[in-house]
Simulated scan of single mutants.
Amino acid sequence: MTKPGRPGARRAGSKKGATKGTGGLGRKALEGRGPTPKAEDRAWHPAGKRKAAAERYAAAGGKGKPGQKPQSNINRGSRAKSTDDTETVTGRNSVLEAMRTKIPATAFYIAQRVEMDDRVKEMLAIARHRDIPVMEVTRQELDRMAGFDGVHQGVALKVPPYEYQHPQDVLEDVLNRNETPLFVALDGITDPRNLGAIIRSTAAFGGQGVILPQRRSASVNSAAWKTSAGAAARIPVAIAPNLTNTLKEFKKQGVFILGLDGGGDVELPQLELADRPVVIVVGSEGKGLSRLVTEHCDQIVSIPISAATESLNAGIATSVALYQVATMRQAAQ
């Protein structure tokens, strides 16, 4: 008679399958699936999508190898993002202007089923002529590249980090061309969209450069590129290790320093230095010009506005000042 055992107990030797220590040699061997395909050979992978787009581009008569990835041998700048050594220019006007000025772009992105106008056709022609890889992507991908507040209009361009110049080099270039210097220096402007607007206004009214302090300043990033509408490709932007010292050096070379401030000692329409070499210094909306910069200004200039308006945006104030200076210079000729 069999003795009852513990519930769930099993007699010795009744265990089936591989025993302890066999390493599972009794199991049926698994069949392998072969080596993992390369990323570019997987249709759903971003690399596969790039390869397919490049093949379509090459089949349409474009140059470049199918599956070619954009490469960049540009050294990372001091203000470049730590995770990427490129900036993304978005918007049809900005992208076209950057391509026209032959910035060494690394890739041109175009949305699937994009509306073709003359600007897009010119972009594609320039890309083919300069061997810039063309990537066809979804609008969702362009949305991600442009950022939450970016407007890409179906196109984007990857460009290397902006190459800043030295203020003294920019000044010497202007003097060598026998032009009257007109620069804008920013003192505490941290919004890149303000910077882009100021670069655009500088280009529109005959300015030859924008000077940024090395610290506590906006940089020429994708937002500044977008707002400048491509003017960042034409107007040099210089980095001053010390803005105060740079202004002092400019003064030694006959350049007058004009600070914009609501409490200025002269109103803009009465400015008498417009036809001289000048640097217009613009401070932040909140703090205005710093004390050290104010001490080195030859004049503090105010823009007359209605009492109902407390102040002007830094970009707008710069545009008004540049327009007034340009108008006075034309009248003096």
Rank of each mutant, 00 (worst) to 15 (best):
A332R: 10
D117N: 13
Q153D: 14
D84T: 12
E272G: 11
R92Y: 10
L289F: 03
T202Y: 08
E249M: 13
E267H: 13
V137D: 03
P269V: 09
L292R: 07
K102C: 09
K248W: 09
A54T: 07
C297H: 01
G91E: 01
S319K: 05
A29F: 05
L30G: 09
S94Q: 09
V293N: 01
D191W: 15
P66K: 12
P160H: 02
M328I: 13
G23W: 11
V89P: 06
A80K: 01
N194I: 12
G264T: 15
A307W: 02
I199Y: 03
I103H: 07
G147V: 06
Q299W: 04
I74F: 08
G48I: 04
A105H: 00
P269D: 08
R216D: 14
L271G: 10
S306C: 05
A240M: 02
A233V: 07
A232P: 00
S82M: 08
R119P: 02
M145S: 04
R113V: 04
T227F: 09
P35E: 08
I198P: 10
T202F: 02
V137A: 06
D187H: 03
S311F: 11
G17N: 04
K20W: 08
A274W: 04
I211Q: 03
T190L: 15
A29E: 12
G230T: 08
H166P: 09
M99G: 01
P104C: 05
R216M: 00
K28I: 11
P104D: 05
N178Q: 14
D131T: 09
R276I: 03
